[in-house]
């Protein structure tokens, strides 16, 4: 589906999201996403958010990829940092202990 028919579908979808009660737009979906994933979105907004995922293919797939991105980012840090643990030079330890000493 390309060109004119596709534009009509998107126009209808936009109209529906904007005017049908109980629906939110993709921009509002963006506003809710961080709180939704934190689990702090109030129940009413959470229901609107979850309903949006059901009728908006784009937001549904966007959310899955978004979630995976956050998982990927966390896992990358975990793995890379575990592979290369920081060695602490002895002179740093001595410098820290020395700087502490003069305190009464």
């Amino acid at each position: 589906m390309t060109g004119q028919p596709r534009r009509i579908v998107r126009f209808l979808k936009a109209t529906m999201m904007r005017y049908v009660p109980g629906m939110i737009t993709c921009a509002e979906f963006d506003d809710f996403i961080v709180s939704y994933l934190d689990g702090t979105l109030p129940q009413k907004e959470r229901r609107l958010f979850e309903f949006h995922i059901r009728y908006c293919r784009e937001c549904r797939e966007y959310l899955s990829a978004y979630r995976r991105t956050v998982e990927l980012e966390k896992a990358a840090f975990r793995q890379v940092e575990a592979e290369l643990p920081e060695s602490v030079p002895e002179d740093l330890i001595q410098a820290i202990l020395k700087a502490r000493e003069p305190r009464p």
């Binding site: 998107r10 126009f11 979808k13 936009a14 999201m17 904007r18 737009t25 993709c26 921009a27 979906f29 908006c56 293919r57 784009e58 937001c59 797939e61 966007y62 899955s64 990829a65 995976r68």
Partner: peptide, 13 residues
Amino acid sequence: YGVRVEAPWHQIA
């Protein structure tokens, strides 16, 4: 129109 643009995903690694 304010509708999200997202190319279809088949599978996510």
